[in-house]
Nucleic acid binder design. Structure first.
Lengths: 218, 218, 218, 218
DNA sequence: GATGAATGAGATTTCATTCAT
DNA sequence: AATGAATGAAATCTCATTCAT
């Protein structure tokens, strides 16, 4: 099969996996169901993805790609604005991305757990995962959104819109913690009967962005 | 068996589960191993916990309990200090708790995912989970740490150490997002070969606490 | 506990077992259910009967006792009749006994299977069974109904009502095969949707008795 | 898998079950052992037979098939003989079949118990059994041996070798009762230490056949 | 390359029997 | 002697993964 054809099929499978995972979560999703949704059999699926985890890695990769895409677009839209404004826009985009793409944001978080597990259990045979082409791709990509943010922050320092005494990497990570924490709370409260108090998650987002602005602005 | 005895045995099993899960994670932990570690049989274990997931709920509950305990202790230690100081101490305790109790913090996060899944899939048969006594207990407990924090913040407003114009609930949740995000990053970077840039997580914690202080102090 | 009290309790348990077994058969009957029906706990039951099989032995014993009783009564009622008439009456009683006491007749048949199994697997540990007090009792009793029949047949030879050239033991056993076969067919056809052709079992009984009469009468 | 292939595999499993059951009996036979003997896994076995009981149904079916086979053969061998001779030959074959195929004859008897249980407990969930393809097959087959015998008897009436005034169905069933009863006694006495008196089972068989002849012959 | 069947590992259940109190 | 809890052995089920064709 020529590469492009294979690529198409792969995408088809990932689409199916995406649908099924969205409904059930990773643990409860059955390979069988994903295969059925993709209109193929389990074994065919396995000829594309060596394992369930590998398939999830592909989704993670997609998530990172989509996120990166969003970052690039945001940066492009703000290329004539100040670094501060651009940085703020990035975080806002990040928040919105997570809200709109729940599975993707979960996947990004799970990726963190994954690599954490890898390093905690070095004895185990993780060849499967680490040799996955998607794992490699993700690793190449994983820091890109962070770096893009750092870059915009640094531009902000240069153009005088951001305080010059801050550690850009640190503040970028700090922004991430807020987004990540927000997603988690979001996922827990969305339709929950016993919500976390009575706060609108919207205002939480706003507050986080305000925090960021305060920390960065002159 | 009188309740206290049953409680003891249950705790014994949860202890064992804790040990095994700490080593292997939820997926790879075998019920058989947990039972052996607890010095009982699989069947006996099943007479206490209907399923692996149910056992994990118990650990989640413990995690919440432990966290609540830490909050109470911190509050008690700061009862003669200002509300601001107490609030800051709570967040610091929270950070430290997560750092020191990885499994617990994972469990707390997983609890969020769990209830998120529950609400996203109302069709599925989640009776097992929702009828678990531990699920109920967790639900009763889940907002307590939040509420305790809110209370201290309000005390801070009253004693003049915290700005009177803030929304305590909102700022508490904001604090949580930072802690939660921090844990996630923490779990991902601890011994990771390709760390998230080169930032010390310690300084990230410090920065978060600074953010909090700035937002709250007069 | 004095003996008679123990005897009472034992009977109580056997009654319960009888009820439950009647509903479900031996395989599917649960010790728990029998105990509940008897108003005691499993362990108490075990203090009376060392095993499920032992309990069944007790029922078998009862069955044999009841059957023997019937034989005695029939013989007594026919003590002034010819040996032939008495013999025929015995077989008729036997048929009727089986029809009215399905579980008992099953138990008697199962007793045959039981001792057959014992002899086929001499390596196994059958101590439990062979040392049961009921097993001993049954063994003492098992041939009695047969012997009683033989005796009446012999009386028939003496009083000239039965042909003198027949082997009484052999013909007694022959009678048994017919009764046993009859029970089996009976049990299979009672309420079965696809009955064994369209024959009234009653006429089968009659035919069997006719056979017996023809074989025995002068 | 095409049907014939599946049938082959099923037969392979039934063969294995036959071997194991012959050694241990139904109760003590372990699914695992049967699977091993068949050279497959437990799970594979379960994909062919939903339960141990279902597997036993298959053996019952085989027993009936084998018996039917024997009947057909006997009839064929006696197609040039009188109906009486053929009928007698059938019963003799039946006796011999049971003597030579203990497990099969047990299975046939157990089938009677099974349907008896089914009809006595209509409340229980017997879907498993009644929906088994083998259960259906057995039901289709169960009356065939009977009918074949009836046919030969009727042929005997036509060719004048059998009395014209008998009820063929009734006498066929009568023959069955004797065979069935014989099996039961056989199984109980084979190697039994406390035999049913001192009668040779052979002579019992002979007597039964004599009975049959007398009843049928002119 | 695609398929149906099979595997292996582990979760869960059932139940007779035993233990500890 | 009686009880609730525990055991052990086996049945059954679930599902990711692999085999054979």
């Amino acid at each position: 099969m020529d590469l492009s054809k294979r690529q198409l099929k792969e995408n088809n499978i990932i689409d199916a996996a995406f649908k099924v995972l969205s409904l059930t979560g990773f643990q409860k999703a059955k390979i069988e169901d994903i295969a059925k949704t993709a209109g193929i059999t389990k074994v065919t699926l396995y000829s594309y993805f060596d394992s369930k985890e590998n398939l999830y890695l592909a989704i993670m990769y997609r998530a990172l790609q989509a996120l990166t895409e969003v970052f690039y677009t945001t940066i492009d839209q703000n290329k004539n604005e100040s670094g501060l404004k651009s940085t703020k826009a990035i975080f806002e985009s990040f928040f919105n991305f997570c809200e709109r793409n729940f599975l993707y944001s979960e996947a990004i978080l799970d990726y963190f757990s994954l690599i954490s597990n890898l390093s905690r259990n070095p004895k185990e045979d993780n060849t499967q995962i680490t040799q996955s082409i998607y794992f490699t791709r993700i690793q190449d990509l994983q820091n890109l959104p962070l770096k893009l943010t750092v870059k915009e922050m640094e531009r902000g320092i240069k153009d005088g819109s951001i305080r010059p005494d801050i550690d850009c990497v640190l503040h970028t990570l700090q922004g991430w913690t807020m987004v990540i924490g927000y997603i988690k709370l979001l996922s827990a409260t969305s339709t929950n009967e016993a919500p976390l108090l009575n706060v609108s998650l919207k205002s939480l987002k706003t507050l986080s962005l305000t925090f960021a602005e305060k920390a960065l602005a002159l």
